[in-house]
């Protein structure tokens, strides 16, 4: 069979199937692996602008989500305690559980921040300059970190904690929780929509 010079090879990131593709997806189209049906490529409408907007949204919610109190508990004795994501980590750290604190910090604060900043930096600088070596290094970090973003797990944990404490006092959800939910949704949407292959192609010299 003749090979079209515009054809290119693709490897399914999920099951390693090697395939040949004729053309990239148009906006709204989606290519999926014939063997395992996982996503290969999505034609994303205005992908660069979308990426920039999503990372800015993430950046906007990041500080309130992590540093504003998520919930206050009013005990029967009248005492009130507040907790933000950062408070939880700091508390573990001061009580000597530094490893656990580090792990929670890594999964709930550090990885989202790194991904947001790297993608923001890439989407801004790639508009004005040629891809450099450090762009590639940075994006490689994002590719390795994506399964360590655990904000969705954190939200479920929050629900579990709430149920565990519901008999101990009155729970008052706070603005930090809303910001955390927004950040989690933004991050999940960003990671689902992020087309790594498309970005790698842009990063090629």
């Amino acid at each position: 069979m003749e090979r079209d010079p515009h054809d290119f090879m693709v490897i399914c990131p999920h099951c390693d199937l090697v395939m040949q593709m004729h053309e990239h997806c148009f906006a709204g189209q989606k290519a999926s692996c014939p063997r395992c049906h996982s996503k290969l490529e999505t034609g994303w409408v205005h992908s660069e602008t979308m990426l920039l907007l999503l990372t800015l949204t993430g950046l906007f919610f990041y500080i309130p989500a992590n540093f504003y109190p998520m919930m206050a508990v009013e005990m029967k004795a009248g005492m009130i305690t507040n907790a933000s994501v950062f408070d939880g980590i700091f508390h573990l750290f001061t009580k000597g559980q530094w490893f656990t604190a580090l792990l929670v910090f890594f999964c709930s604060m550090l990885t989202p921040a790194l991904i947001i900043f790297v993608l923001l930096y890439l989407s801004i600088t790639l508009k004005y300059m040629q891809p450099r070596r450090h762009h590639q290094e940075l994006f490689r970090v994002v590719c390795h970190l994506d399964s360590w973003v655990m904000l969705d797990v954190y939200l479920i944990s929050f629900c579990v904690a709430m149920f565990k404490m519901k008999d101990l006092g009155v729970l008052h959800p706070n603005w930090g929780l809303l910001a955390l939910i927004c950040l989690a949704v933004t991050m999940i949407y960003l990671m689902c929509q992020l087309d790594k292959r498309q970005i790698w192609e842009k990063l090629r010299h």
């Binding site: 005990m75 305690t81 929670v104 399964s147 579990v160």
Partner: peptide
């Protein structure tokens, strides 16, 4: 695998909210 981290997050949240000094 990621979902096992839940227990640690729950501990991290509850340790702050339940900390009332001597009580």
């Amino acid at each position: 695998g990621r979902w096992s981290m839940m227990d640690l997050f729950v501990i991290s949240i509850m340790s702050v909210l339940m900390d009332l000094g001597h009580i």
